[in-house]
Design a protein around this nucleic acid. Structure first.
Length: 290
DNA sequence: CCGTTAACCTGAGAGC
DNA sequence: TGCTCTCAGGTTAACG
């Protein structure tokens, strides 16, 4: 489900609820996630205190007081639910996936604290948890990833180095986490629309002014999405009334056949499958030749 | 090395 | 009501 903004919001929710708290117990109902949950996962996390919670790209990072770190990827459908013991309903203010009442059969991991527990629910099981026994190993894991759009490393020189001479289209690169990390299928389409660059545009043909736009609008779109609480697909609304609202600002994503929102443009948004993922764009605003 | 495809899963929604 | 089909915010092994 989530791209950088949504993961950022989940991280912020987790900070409010479980930062500086001690994990008392872990129950794994189904460890068959994208990667199998490590056998020693429970024993390592039990009785550790969560010192800090951060995020890199689409990963949530829990730093524990026993030198271990736990990274969490939500895949397509991973969500966290807060379960106060006294109340019967699951509170889903940590969740961004469709219904707030997901079937319990997908409640795979239960993490207990003194007064409540949080539950990891993931119908498709593309998410995963992974632990590292040192900061160095944690950092090494992230060395495989490109900079986030916000990073100073994501600059014109970097784009030129990576993209010159390349035949692969630019949409593909925006989704390539080794090139830039944190962008997913929704924001890739949104960013390219604002850049007025066709998703099929050959990366090697991009010029300096294209690079500038990609850098500028990547940051702008992701920042605004974070400000809006991320994007929430469908009519999801949780018991506390919290849901992301960036979907209201989609210019192209999920707007097939609708009128282009650019001023004076009468074009209709096209949906096209590029490299097995849907892309949305306006043929008039995002010409292939320019 | 490069780029593309299929695969990993379940559930929602469309069409019949 | 129910069946079948397609699609979904991600990643990556395997292939040509």
């Amino acid at each position: 489900m989530p791209e950088l903004p949504e993961v950022e919001i989940v991280k912020q929710s987790l900070i409010k609820k479980i930062k500086s708290k001690k994990i008392r117990k872990i129950i794994i109902k189904n460890g068959n996630l994208r990667f199998k949950v490590a056998k020693n996962f429970s024993s390592i996390l039990k009785n550790s205190k969560i010192e800090n919670i951060s995020r890199f790209s689409k990963y949530i990072v829990l730093n524990l007081d026993n030198n271990y770190s736990c990274i969490i990827h939500l895949g397509m459908s991973g969500t966290f639910h807060l379960d106060m013991k006294k109340k019967k309903k699951l509170h889903t203010n940590l969740s961004f996936y469709q219904s707030p009442y997901l079937p319990k059969k997908h409640n795979h991991i239960h993490i207990y604290f003194d007064k409540f527990k949080i539950i990891y629910n993931d119908p498709r099981r593309f998410g995963f948890f992974k632990i590292f026994n040192s900061k160095k190993k944690l950092n090494n894991f992230f060395l495989n990833y490109g900079p986030e759009p916000f990073s100073k490393k994501f600059n014109i020189k970097y784009l030129n180095n990576k993209l010159k001479g390349k035949s692969k289209n630019i949409k593909n690169y925006l989704l390539d986490q080794k090139f830039v990390s944190g962008i997913g299928n929704i924001y890739a389409s949104e960013i390219l629309f604002l850049c007025k660059i066709n998703p099929c545009f050959k990366s090697g043909d991009l010029k300096k002014n294209h690079y500038k736009k990609i850098i500028f609008f990547s940051r702008k779109v992701l920042k605004k999405a974070i400000k809006m609480g991320g994007s929430t697909i469908q009519n999801f609304k949780n018991s506390e009334g919290k849901a992301g609202s960036f979907q209201k600002y989609f210019k192209v994503y999920d707007r097939e056949n609708k009128v282009c929102l650019s001023k004076k443009c009468q074009g209709k948004i096209i949906k096209k499958t590029i490299s097995n993922r849907s892309s949305f764009y306006c043929n008039f605003c995002q010409k292939l030749s320019n």
